[in-house]
């Protein structure tokens, strides 16, 4: 049963005398108790989608509902059932972790006693006891995110929005936060998660919607998406730039999809069926043709590959 629903959302901004279509007919469907990953580069419309669904902005057209409640017509009812954690860790830096959480509880109108109790519970749950009485300003990035996330959970909301929860964190903090989020979602909360990282969507989401230029361009489980763009890739880095064209056509003969060229202009890669065998064959062929290689290997597809395959352009071509 669909719990979060968005239909044909359109939102345009005018920025620098230019009309930007942040959302261009975006539709989304999140079944109850599942985690939907919204995957896309900066400027694809992820945050705008979250802002519409969390009542922060109104779309130009389209409809949205959560558990049958219309987001645009009944924003006050929506606010009582959602928790939101943003990419900027929107906590008050001057207040302590405890003060931040207690304040959020009071603003959900839980009453003084319940708000205090809940703040203490969350501090323990998120392993922030040491930091509870220090101003957030002195916290590490990972701790700040955890306070922000705890703030989103104050009322045990049935719906949780996590907008790029780990962007800008170091790998260790990211792993820590992933664990926290995984524990949460096993509890049955319905989650909409946005991310730029395929791996993050892979780890946390039951199903992924790839979005680009304000539209969902592909949807499925992480395995389905990877299958769609080819599971493994062979990547070769050429010594001489003048060999690139010839290298591309040689590799194309062995590959299952388009050959893409990396940003350096000399690294070529393509999806293949049997990566090990193809790599051996490629090394042999390239040696016979006297094309010198800097590097050669197999790798899993990245977000760049997904984009290249699905949209024909690289992630960084999309203007923010």
């Amino acid at each position: 049963m669909s719990f979060i629903q968005a239909n044909d959302l359109i939102k345009t901004y005018s920025a620098n005398k230019r009309i930007v279509k942040a959302l261009d007919g975006l539709s989304l469907d999140v079944p109850k108790g599942t985690v939907k990953g919204l995957l896309g580069p900066n400027g694809a419309g992820k945050t705008t989608t979250v802002k519409v669904l969390t009542t922060l902005i109104n779309p130009d057209s389209g409809t949205a509902s959560i558990d049958g409640v219309d987001v645009l017509k009944e924003p006050e009812a929506i606010k009582r059932m959602i928790g939101v954690s943003g990419q900027y860790a929107a906590v008050d830096q001057k207040l302590t972790g405890y003060e931040n959480l207690e304040m959020v509880g009071r603003l959900y109108h839980l009453g003084a006693k319940r708000a205090k109790q809940r703040a203490t519970e969350l501090i323990e749950m998120f392993d922030l006891v040491e930091a509870a009485n220090r101003p957030v300003k002195g916290f590490s990035g990972g701790m700040r995110r955890r306070i922000d996330l705890a703030g989103a959970l104050v009322i045990n909301p049935p719906v949780l929005f996590l907008d790029e929860p780990t962007t800008g964190l170091d790998p260790r903090s990211r792993l820590g936060l992933w664990k926290v989020i995984k524990d949460l979602v096993s509890d049955g909360t319905t989650v909409l998660l946005t991310t730029q990282y395929l791996e993050e969507a892979d780890q946390l989401a039951d199903s992924i919607a790839v979005i680009d230029q304000g539209k969902v361009i592909a949807e499925g489980t992480s395995d389905e998406l990877k299958m769609q763009i080819g599971g493994q890739r062979v990547e070769l880095s050429l010594v001489r730039l003048e060999d690139v064209e010839k290298g591309k056509s040689l590799l194309a003969g062995m590959a299952q999809g388009d050959v893409s060229v990396g940003n350096d202009g000399r690294t070529i890669s393509a999806p293949v069926d049997n990566a090990a065998a193809t790599l051996q064959q490629a090394l042999k062929t390239f040696a016979e043709e006297s094309i010198e290689l800097n590097d050669a290997g197999m790798r899993r597809p990245t977000l760049d590959d997904v984009f290249m395959e699905l949209t024909g352009h690289k992630t960084e071509d999309v203007s923010a």
Binding site: K51, Y88, A90
Partner: peptide, 17 residues
């Protein structure tokens, strides 16, 4: 700028508060 207004606006609090 800090995004705190966004957080407040997702809470069911009074818009004047």
């Amino acid at each position: 700028k800090d995004g705190i207004i966004d957080r407040f606006r997702t809470l069911p609090m009074s818009s004047a508060a």
